[in-house]
């Protein structure tokens, strides 16, 4: 068993999944992975079975948060110390997982694979949204997160437990903001990401606007009122001591 579990949520990724998981399994055999098929309507699950991939096949569609949580529950049950979220569409590159784990071992709770630690942010609508979310997090926590919308995040064992068992722990910037307020230590590691090669992105303009308003509303208004479960507080690191 490796120390890091790579969780690959996949929804209708028949065009990408073989390339993504194939690359990971052949070039990084030291990493354990699990594909979470989130009730895809296409042949994603069949392709995984054919290739003998380690697969969690959800019988109905739960959405990204529910699918990823299924992967974290698997990580929790199988005692992985670290888990990393890794897109099934080929945007994320496995060569950065090692660097993220190294950062993790310095004592962080969450490490974000960030596109903008040393690189400059390009100017576009999407990056404007990213800046707004970063500003909201900075206003409420005082911490600078340069790439809050990056989907490539690594979690410690403590975070795995909290995400796996809690409610309102979507793998999104608002949860990160909440956890920082609660004392979780978050770091960023520079990574490069690829453009999605095939299939359709979920974040079309209308969805992107909806996502943005939900995140801002949640970070600025709602997260301030959340109370942390005492179970997680007591365990130290990540909670207030």
């Amino acid at each position: 068993m490796s120390e890091v579990l790579v969780i690959i949520p996949a929804y209708n990724e028949e065009e990408n999944i073989e390339r993504v998981v194939g690359n990971l399994a052949s070039h990084y055999p030291e990493l354990d992975y699990v594909v979470v098929n989130d009730g895809s309507a296409d042949s994603t699950a069949a392709i995984c079975r054919k290739n003998g991939y380690n697969l969690l096949d959800l019988p109905v569609n739960l959405g990204l948060a529910g699918g990823f949580q299924a992967g974290l529950k698997y990580a929790w049950r199988n005692h992985y110390p670290y888990a990393v979220q890794f897109d099934g569409d080929g945007q994320h590159r496995p060569e950065y997982i090692g660097a993220m784990k190294k950062k993790m071992e310095e004592g962080y709770d969450i490490v974000i694979g960030s596109r903008f630690v040393t690189e400059k942010k390009p100017r576009s609508m999407r990056m404007f949204g990213s800046n707004l979310i970063a500003l909201a997090i900075r206003l409420t926590t005082g911490v600078k997160i340069k790439d809050p919308t990056s989907g490539m995040r690594m979690f410690s064992r403590k975070m795995i437990e909290e995400f796996a068992l809690g409610l309102n722990y979507g793998p999104e910037p608002d949860t990160i903001s909440y956890l920082i307020r609660q004392g979780a230590k978050v770091a960023e590691v520079q990574v490069a990401m690829d453009e999605r090669i095939a299939g359709e992105s979920y974040l079309k303009p209308v969805n992107a606007a909806k996502y943005m308003s939900k995140m801002l509303f949640s970070i600025l208004l709602i997260q301030n009122f959340r109370k942390r479960d005492r179970r997680y507080k007591k365990k130290g690191g990540g909670g207030e001591e």
Binding site: G166, L167, I222
Partner: peptide
Amino acid sequence: MLRKIRQSKAKIEDAMFWV
């Protein structure tokens, strides 16, 4: 609504409408 969120009994998405 904020109490329900505090107690982890409501999802943020559902609370948004009421707020």
